[in-house]
Amino acid sequence: MFDTRFEAILRSVAELPEDLVITGEQNLRSELGVDSLKLMDLIVNLEGEYSIELSDDVSADVRTVEELWLEISQEAD
């Protein structure tokens, strides 16, 4: 579903354990503990890694791992 770069950045910024299985359905905030500051850090890191610029609405609109990945993959195309 998502690539290893995306997963590595998410895992690092959210401080997730290596043995945690990340799925698209997981809620970034309630299940993975990504608060608003971590979300902004996550977006900045992803924009840099993929050489893209996401809209300001992304931080308010995305709820799940899959939604965030879709935003990244659409911009990276």
Rank of each mutant, 00 (worst) to 15 (best):
F6S: 03
D61C: 01
L42V: 02
A14D: 12
D3F: 06
S73N: 11
L70N: 12
E71Q: 14
P17W: 04
G48F: 09
V13F: 00
A8D: 15
D35C: 10
D19C: 02
R63A: 12
V58L: 08
F6K: 01
V13L: 00
E15I: 04
D77M: 02
V34K: 05
L20P: 00
E15Y: 02
W69G: 11
E31W: 04
V58S: 11
E25A: 14
L32D: 12
L16A: 09
R11Y: 03
A76C: 03
L10C: 11
E49T: 12
E66N: 10
V44Q: 08
S59H: 00
L32T: 07
L42F: 00
A14M: 07
L46A: 04
E66R: 03
V65I: 06
V21S: 14
L54S: 14
Y50L: 07
S51K: 13
L28K: 03
E49G: 07
T64R: 02
E15P: 00
E47L: 10
L37F: 10
A76M: 05
V65D: 13
L37N: 09
S55N: 14
N45S: 13
F6W: 01
E53V: 12
L68V: 01
E7I: 07
D35G: 04
N27Y: 09
N27V: 11
E67K: 02
S59G: 14
S55P: 10
S36D: 14
E49C: 14
N27L: 09
V62I: 08
W69K: 02
R5V: 15
S55E: 15
I43W: 00
E25H: 07
P17S: 15
L16I: 15
G24H: 01
L20F: 08
E31G: 08
Q74L: 10
D3I: 03
Q26A: 12
M1W: 02
L20T: 05
L10R: 01
E49H: 06
E47Y: 06
S12N: 13
L10V: 11
D41W: 00
T64G: 08
N27E: 15
D56M: 06
Q26T: 06
G33H: 07
I52K: 04
L28I: 05
S51W: 02
A14C: 08
E31I: 08
D57K: 00
E49M: 07
S59N: 05
Q74D: 15
E66G: 07
L16E: 11
D35I: 12
S51N: 15
M40L: 12
S12T: 06
A14T: 09
D35W: 04
T64Q: 08
E47T: 09
F6M: 05
V34D: 13
L37Y: 07
L28D: 11
L37C: 05
E66K: 06
N45T: 04
L70V: 15
I9F: 00
W69P: 02
T4C: 13
F2A: 14
L54Q: 11
S59T: 05
